[in-house]
Amino acid sequence: MGIKSIAKVKNDIATVKLLVKHPMLSGTISGGKGKPKYITHLTVKHGGRVVYDMYPTSAISKNPYIKFAFKGAKKGDIITVQWKDNTGATEKKDIKLK
């Protein structure tokens, strides 16, 4: 697990790129013998408000890449990335906007 990020602010708009380490297994590998393991909900919060609300499935590629932008951000603000997968595993990370 682990989340890599680039998060920059320009003119009030924050552009966030994330690379989330996760296998995103569908469970259909070699005739359905594998167990599914994929992220079902990923959110990014900025000051208590949800700025990104994603419901992925196993159709999102391994180690998901995510890019989005939101308004109303300042340099130095903290955003919180949080995900949950179908097995109940979770991860949370605070990222400082540059």
């Binding site: 609300d53 890449y65 995510i66 989005f68 932008a69």
Partner: peptide, 17 residues
């Protein structure tokens, strides 16, 4: 494949794979 809920302040343009 994937679904997003949109909120105010979020620019509705997303990239992924």
């Amino acid at each position: 494949a994937v679904s997003w809920d949109l909120s105010e302040g979020t620019i509705p343009k997303f990239s992924t794979r």
